Amino acid sequence: MDILPLNIHSCGRGHKKEWFQQIRRDFNPAVVAIQETKCGTIDDSWMESVWLSPKFKFKKKEAVGFSGVMFLIWDTNTFNANQAIKGEFYLVIKGHWVGIVEEIAIVNVYSPHSHSKKLRFWKELESLINFKDMLWIICGDFNEKQDEKNVKLTLKNWCGSVLKNLDSDITEHAKTFEKWDLIAESRSLTDAELSFWLNERKIWLEKEKLKLNMLKKKARIKWALEGDENTKYFHKFIRHRNNKNAIHGLSINGVWSEDPKEIKDEVFRYYSNLFKRGSSINTGSLNFNASLISHEGNEMLEAPFCEAEIWHVIQCCGSTKSPRRHRFNHKFYTKYFWLIKEDLKIALDWFWSNYEISRGCNASFITLIPKKSNPVALGEYRPHHSHWKLL
């Protein structure tokens, strides 16, 4: 992105026009942010003469004090602006940069000298930035006297105080949370233990969110430019989303509970009763004159499984579906069918002869997907099964 902030210290002088034109020739910026023109107004002909191209647009903010009018000029072949916002000490244009999907806001700043006005200005700008999640680029004259070395030192100290040992803290709190989660599976937790377990989870999730936000800021420009999904931020975001979607509490018989053992017992009880429910069939509505299969079709259904039939079923299954507990998906069966086909045939022949499946062979995972935001009861979740099976 070729964005050039430029404090021109008065554009009324004759040589400033030639100076600006030379900058355009040498650097060819797509966007120029101009401050301190020391002019009350500048006409369109002056802007066209310095830009050296008819394909441009600009926005200006009227003069405040002696600093003069403020400008943002951009090349319409590179940036398409659709909104402008004016503040006392800033000018914002929002739009899209060619080749980047995410919306971008470019802020031209001429900060006041007064400390109290600076605080008011930055609070106003902070509120504007937090109002909408997009890519923000801030440039201009901040009227700060700190040198580059002091700025870097300040940033380094801030990062050290906020992010020091963040990764190790996340790992430590996650291990403590998982440890008490396992304890809660074997026995009920006391009030003190439950309070400690919930506090550990809260601290863990807060630190995860802080780490996610920092990675988001670091990866945002690269992600927008390159469209790279295989980034640390991307995977951290997925883990944070999984933590957020976890069931942290349920309403059990009208009482809210966050005890993990009570939650797991309630889930087991709820779905055990759900799958055990019988259903009566109204035989009067059945059509006993339905067509019957032929004798040849009946023999085909009762025939033992053949290798061609097994291979056809494997090919019809999704090869990239989620793996089961043994960590293999169906791509394994398609790739190594030549190696395991005899064992598969033996297993399926045994089922054909004995008409039963060993306990555990047909087990699978069920994912509970919330039907709405902030669900409180199991009836507000939708069970989803995502595995293909050969049998």
Rank of each mutant, 00 (worst) to 15 (best):
L128S: 07
V107Q: 00
S364M: 08
N253A: 15
D26E: 07
A174M: 11
A174S: 13
Y110N: 01
K59M: 11
N150F: 04
S386Q: 06
K117H: 03
T78D: 00
S186W: 03
A219R: 00
E62Q: 08
S188V: 12
N242V: 10
N165S: 13
I183F: 10
E144A: 06
I252M: 09
W158C: 02
E124T: 06
S373M: 06
S291V: 15
R220L: 00
N143R: 03
E193Q: 14
T41M: 05
N80W: 09
L378N: 03
R382E: 14
P370E: 01
Y90N: 10
K331G: 04
Y271C: 10
N77D: 05
D181C: 04
W97T: 15
H330K: 11
D169N: 13
F268W: 09
L368P: 04
D44C: 10
I203T: 10
D169T: 15
D228R: 13
S291Q: 09
K209L: 12
C159Q: 06
K156T: 08
G99C: 07
N130G: 13
I293C: 04
G249K: 03
N108M: 03
K244P: 05
M70R: 01
S279K: 14
P5Q: 01
D141Q: 02
H113C: 05
N287G: 07
K232N: 14
K117E: 00
T78V: 05
D343L: 09
W19E: 13
R120P: 06
L286V: 01
P29K: 07
K207T: 08
S168L: 08
E309R: 11
R241M: 05
C39T: 12
A184D: 12
Y381L: 11
R13Q: 09
A30G: 14
K232H: 14
V109C: 02
N213S: 12
F275C: 13
